[in-house]
Amino acid sequence: MTNQITPLDESVHILNVINNNIIRYHRALCSLPDYHVDPNIVMTINTMSFENGCILVTSYFDEYHGHFIRLLNEQQRRYINPYFKRIKNVLNLFPDIKEFRNQVVAHNLRVKNKSVPTNKSLTSFVVPQTIIEFSIVIECIKYITTIINRMFPLAMKKVVMHLSAEERRKSVVLKSPLTPAEAETILVELIRDLQIIASNQDIPDD
């Protein structure tokens, strides 16, 4: 096994990382009812996880179409295409995932200077609405990732080994810019100062 990391290795690694993150979100969503969490909290976490899930799903297929598939030779494409064609038939049930991600989740509800909610009903986006519908999309991604790993069984390992070696070589440890005490002080002072500003000003007329 050569230690040289190829663009194809990198793409396979990225697809696996995104797939694993999607699976984590899905497991969290499916586990929430078992912990008897307050329904309002469940709804909030559900929404956050769903929105992040849409971002990850979009990222996965952007990587698949924009990089992975372009790096395959003709024989490799012929092998994987029947799998993707079958999966695509299911994904077409939810055609607006990318548009929802772009217009609602990632781009602040504004597209080309127009407010999305006032120009298009949010309910008009055809996206997964339930855990079981989201599970359908996730199963598609899980399966195509399995096929990719069968085709390139060493790619993921090569990149992981490379990244591990780089981390050991650099010995870089992520460090928070603030201590817990500093963060708490800043938060308290921020709230205090904003309240002072509010108490010294009247809301202007329309």
Rank of each mutant, 00 (worst) to 15 (best):
H36G: 07
A155Q: 08
I148R: 01
G66V: 07
C30Y: 10
H107I: 00
L187Q: 13
E10W: 05
D96M: 03
M43V: 09
Q76W: 03
I55W: 05
K170Y: 10
R77N: 10
I197T: 13
I136R: 07
I97W: 00
K98W: 15
Q103I: 08
P128Q: 03
N200W: 04
E51K: 12
L122F: 02
D206R: 15
T118C: 04
I18W: 00
P33G: 04
V116F: 00
E139C: 10
I22D: 02
Q195E: 15
R169A: 14
N113V: 05
N108V: 06
Y64A: 10
D96G: 03
H36N: 09
Y64K: 08
N81S: 11
N81G: 03
T44P: 00
G66T: 05
N119L: 01
V172H: 12
K170M: 14
I186M: 13
S31W: 01
S115E: 05
V160L: 11
I14R: 15
K142T: 07
I147P: 01
Y64C: 03
T2I: 09
F134S: 08
Q129I: 01
N113E: 08
Y83T: 13
M48Y: 09
L72A: 02
N40V: 03
I80A: 00
Y83S: 12
I45A: 08
K112I: 03
H162P: 05
I203Q: 10
L8G: 06
D202R: 10
E133K: 01
D34C: 07
K142L: 13
F125A: 02
K112N: 13
F68R: 00
I136Q: 10
I18H: 00
D206M: 12
S31E: 11
V37M: 04
T44N: 11
N200Q: 15
H26M: 12
F134C: 07
I18C: 01
L72V: 01
K88Y: 10
E133Q: 14
L15N: 01
N149V: 01
P33D: 04
P117F: 04
A181I: 15
R86W: 04
L29E: 00
I196D: 03
K170V: 13
T130E: 05
I203C: 02
T185A: 15
V111C: 05
F84Y: 13
E184H: 14
I18G: 01
K158V: 07
R86E: 11
K170Q: 14
P7K: 09
T6H: 03
I203V: 09
V173C: 07
R24C: 07
F152E: 05
L72Q: 01
I144S: 07
C54G: 09
D9H: 04
H107A: 06
V126I: 08
A28E: 09
E166H: 09
H107G: 01
T146I: 02
N16I: 01
R24T: 10
L15G: 04
P177V: 14
S135L: 06
Q4D: 11
R192Q: 14
V111H: 14
D193P: 13
Y25E: 12
D205K: 15
A181P: 08
